[in-house]
């Protein structure tokens, strides 16, 4: 996956969509969309349901090919799914070790595994199977798996949306903490505006189908950010306004 020895530093871990259009049959989903994700950046995509967010992630991961336009991706890309992305026939430890498949040295792999297990606070559950875990625990295992080894870019498609509210809040902090330990480039899709405001370096608000970027918002505040931080509230207000959901704009609707 690596570009090779001549790796140009500025292009490492960079994701670029250039003028990408895509449609399913008669349904035009993306229309001349351009997007650059910089190394180490956390980009959050928000937008109405069915506007094409999952499609963008599928294009970024190479799961589907665009009908027109070009995509550049460098580095190892991994995806966190909304739920059920773990193999149910493998234990927690075995599921995480899938992320270390390229690591050949057994002792080093063992060490990595222990470290990851500790990182997600699931010591004592290493031999449990996914069906024996709560939703939050399962998503933590998913995070450990994508963070394992040599991954560079993480694509997350509503990874916490199947969880209850409090677990979701906790998982956000968890993600921020994990990314502090192991920095990655992240493209994160969510419906949750709080989540976007707490996690993102940059929020992209997408329009209705065919999706274009209707608004771009840079958030410079340090992470971890609390829900009640000014920066978070400001960002939320801006996003809500953009989506036409802010009360002060009620008479516009």
């Amino acid at each position: 996956m690596y570009a090779g020895v001549m790796k140009d530093k500025s292009s490492v871990n960079r994701l670029v969509l250039e003028n990408v259009s895509h449609s399913y049959g008669a349904v035009a989903v993306l229309n001349h969309l351009s997007l650059v994700v910089n190394p180490g950046e956390i980009v959050v995509l928000v937008g109405p349901s069915g506007c094409g967010k999952t499609t963008i992630l599928n294009l970024l991961s190479g799961h589907i090919e665009p009908m027109s336009g070009s995509i550049q991706r460098e580095g190892v890309i991994r995806t966190v799914y909304q739920h059920d992305g773990l193999f149910p026939w493998l234990t927690v430890l075995e599921n995480i070790s899938i992320g270390l498949r390229s690591l050949k040295d057994a002792t080093q792999r063992e060490k990595e595994l222990r470290e990851l297990l500790e990182l997600i606070h699931l010591e004592g559950f290493e031999h449990h199977y996914p069906h024996q875990l709560s939703g939050g625990m399962k998503q933590r295992v998913e995070l450990a798996r994508v963070l394992a080894g040599d991954s560079d870019i993480l694509l997350m498609d509503e990874p916490f949306s199947a969880l209850d509210y409090q677990t979701r809040l906790r998982m956000r902090h968890e993600l921020v903490r994990l990314l502090k330990e192991r920095p990655r480039t992240v493209v994160f899709v969510t419906h949750d505006i709080e989540e976007a405001a707490q996690l993102a370096d940059r929020v992209l608000v997408l329009s209705n189908r065919p999706a274009t970027i209707s608004h771009e918002l840079q958030i410079n505040a340090q992470r971890p950010r609390d829900l009640t931080d000014n920066a978070v509230i400001e960002a939320m207000t801006a996003i809500l306004k953009e989506l036409g959901l802010q009360t002060s704009d009620r008479n516009d609707v």
């Binding site: 991961s61 799961h63 890309i77 991994r78 995806t79 799914y81 059920d84 992305g85 193999f87 026939w89 493998l90 899938i98 992320g99 498949r101």
Partner: peptide, 29 residues
């Protein structure tokens, strides 16, 4: 078999006989 298992398998480069023995077979066991 839910298609998500094959997507995960693709993300982690499972191919050919390994895909069969490590994903398809345990999924139907």
């Amino acid at each position: 078999i839910p298609s998500i298992y094959f997507r995960v398998a693709k993300d982690y480069n499972y191919k050919g006989i390994e895909l069969l023995t490590k994903v398809t077979f345990p999924a139907v066991l």
